[in-house]
């Protein structure tokens, strides 16, 4: 595993582009002759054929407050996690801050959606299922209200959740899953404590453990039952169910661009050239 290197690359994300980190690493690896392409194993084919059909593009059936059943919509919408008094006070304070300054929301600066927020945004969802891994892609189309996109990886290859020094806070945490028939059972740990889990500003601590049961309840309805435990922030498990409906075949998914709404690359090139020539800004 290449945990530590990836931590660094992710932390100094943009800088990685400048230094061509990939090239340096590739050069450091000794060249060894690679074998022929191995045939796909019969076990993999069998496992793949048993996977459920979650293909296509999906839309959420609930609002973008994570816990829809407890949300009061629309004006003073809030979720109702069973917070400790301390975390309830923190949540109320965050809601007030958000009301006064929408930039309190990390999405305004294009930070990743993270988990659980990526499971509650309005927009499009895809669930990509393979024998070793499931990906969930969610996002809202480019435009003035775009929140960008998020990719989530759920490992179903038998590995366990990271722990000890290998576990570190991430936006989507560390998710492993297993199939119980047609139900994907997922456990996620290692969430960061800075993300908002929905647009109201609800948060969880780094101790949160998110358990999910994801399955088709009808051919075109996917359900995710969440049970969230958090020994620091919650007094009891927080149980939330969200569902998605499958959109017609061929529904397009356009690239999500959190900042695309604000930036025209071509115009910027011109602006920079003008600045260089002493004409602009």
């Amino acid at each position: 595993m290449q945990t530590r290197r990836h931590v660094r690359v992710s932390t100094f994300a943009a800088l990685g582009l400048f230094f061509g980190a990939g090239a340096a690493l590739a050069a450091a690896q000794p060249a060894a002759p690679a074998g022929p392409v191995p045939p796909q194993s019969p076990a993999r084919i069998q496992a793949a054929a048993a996977l459920p059909d979650w293909s296509g593009v999906w839309a959420p059936n609930q609002a973008d407050v994570f816990d829809a059943k407890t949300a009061t919509v629309p004006a003073d919408a809030r979720a109702r996690p069973p917070y400790t008094p301390e975390w309830e006070a923190k949540y109320v304070a965050t809601m007030a801050k958000l009301k006064a300054d929408p930039k309190t929301d990390p999405l305004q600066e294009c930070y990743p959606l993270g988990l659980l927020r990526m499971m509650s945004v309005t927009g499009h969802y895809e669930f990509s299922v393979t024998p070793e891994q499931v990906w969930i892609f969610s996002g809202t189309p480019a435009g003035p209200k775009s929140t960008g996109a998020q990719t989530r990886r759920i490992y179903t290859d038998g590995r366990e959740n990271l722990k000890g020094d290998d576990l570190f806070p991430q936006y989507t945490g560390n998710s492993v899953g297993r199939w119980e028939g047609d139900t994907l059972v997922v456990t996620t740990v290692g969430l960061n404590d800075t993300s908002f889990i929905d647009r109201t500003g609800a948060q969880l601590s780094g101790d949160a453990v998110v358990r999910e049961r994801i399955r088709l309840v009808r051919p075109d309805t996917l359900e995710d039952q969440f049970t969230i435990e958090d020994k620091s922030a919650l007094t009891a498990p927080w149980v939330v169910t969200r569902t998605w409906r499958r959109l017609p075949k061929g529904t397009p998914v356009v690239d999500d661009s959190c900042l695309g709404k604000r930036v025209n690359p071509a115009a910027l090139v011109d602006a920079a050239a003008a600045a260089k020539a002493g004409k602009g800004r």
């Binding site: 600066e109 989507t172 910027l268």
Partner: peptide
């Protein structure tokens, strides 16, 4: 086998932020 791809957060090191006047 077992290599992870981790979350990527460009905003943690945004070299071209947008200022209060909307300029990059």
């Amino acid at each position: 086998a077992g290599t992870y791809i981790f979350d990527y957060a460009c905003a943690e090191n945004n070299r071209n932020p947008v200022d209060e006047n909307g300029r990059t």
